[in-house]
Design a protein around this nucleic acid. Structure first.
Length: 232
DNA sequence: AGCTGATCATAT
DNA sequence: ATATGATCAGCT
């Protein structure tokens, strides 16, 4: 991509990955981009995935496109987490596509569970008032769901998938689900995909995705980085 | 102000 | 069209 760029090799352990990520904490996006020989866009309006891709490159993730974790040999998924000045997530987090055509109803087979088995959360200052180049990386966190967290995710997933299997897809809105929600995920509202209606006919519908609510990711962050009561 | 539904880029 | 990476923008 750039002649002078230095793209690191993949880390050989989760510990090495976390250590490398921790070295990036506190740095601005401009600093990270310059090390890689990347230029920083003016904003993310038309390059929404730029920050995630920058960090993938900086951490030595397997480059683009594959339907597997960012670090396949480590089983680790990288997720950037836009946070406000208080360190609270500003957005929900994309997990994976909702299977609308087939698929097991067993949580243990689900893409959601597989995707979230081990996540490297990387908080980053965000907000329209912050120039992209000057945004700073926060302290990364290598997370695996606790029994309670997994039970919550499983409950939402089973409820939502049950509605879909009973032909209730069109009744599902982003208001369903305590931690995990379903929202449209496509190029735009005209993009369609195949599914099966409640009557069993083949029909077209919006592609959907699973997202983690920001309340859920906020709880993860706050559980691991305790902050003084008066700021909460 | 937070949330839901819509949208943007790139690679395969 | 589907996968990857997410954020935008209007409504409540």
């Amino acid at each position: 991509m750039n002649p002078g760029a230095t793209a690191p090799a993949p880390p050989d352990s989760r510990e090495a990955l976390l250590a490398r990520a921790q070295q990036l904490a506190g740095h601005t996006l401009a600093e990270v981009a310059r090390q890689l020989g990347w230029r920083v866009p003016a904003d993310t309006r038309r390059e929404k995935g730029w920050i995630g891709q920058l960090l993938e490159a900086a951490l030595g993730a397997t480059a683009g496109g594959a339907a597997e974790p960012d670090f396949p040999h480590l089983g680790v998924e990288l997720k950037t987490l836009p946070v406000d000045a208080r360190g609270r997530p500003r957005e929900s987090t994309w997990v994976c596509t909702v299977p609308l055509r087939a698929g097991s109803l067993d949580w243990h087979d689900s893409w959601v569970r597989r995707k979230l088995r081990c996540v490297l959360w990387f908080p980053i200052e965000s907000g329209a008032d912050l120039r992209l180049a000057e945004r700073r990386l926060g302290m990364p966190l290598l997370w695996q769901p606790s029994a309670e967290e997994e039970a919550l995710l499983r409950r939402d997933w089973e409820e939502l998938m049950d509605m879909i299997c009973r032909g209730g897809l069109e009744q599902i809105t982003a208001r369903h689900g305590e931690a995990l929600q379903i929202r449209p995920k496509g190029a735009d509202s005209r993009a369609l995909t195949d599914t099966v209606s409640g009557d069993g006919e083949a029909v077209r519908t919006l592609p959907r995705g699973f997202y983690l609510r920001s309340s859920f990711t906020r709880a993860i962050i706050e559980r691991h980085y305790l902050v003084p009561k008066e700021t909460m």
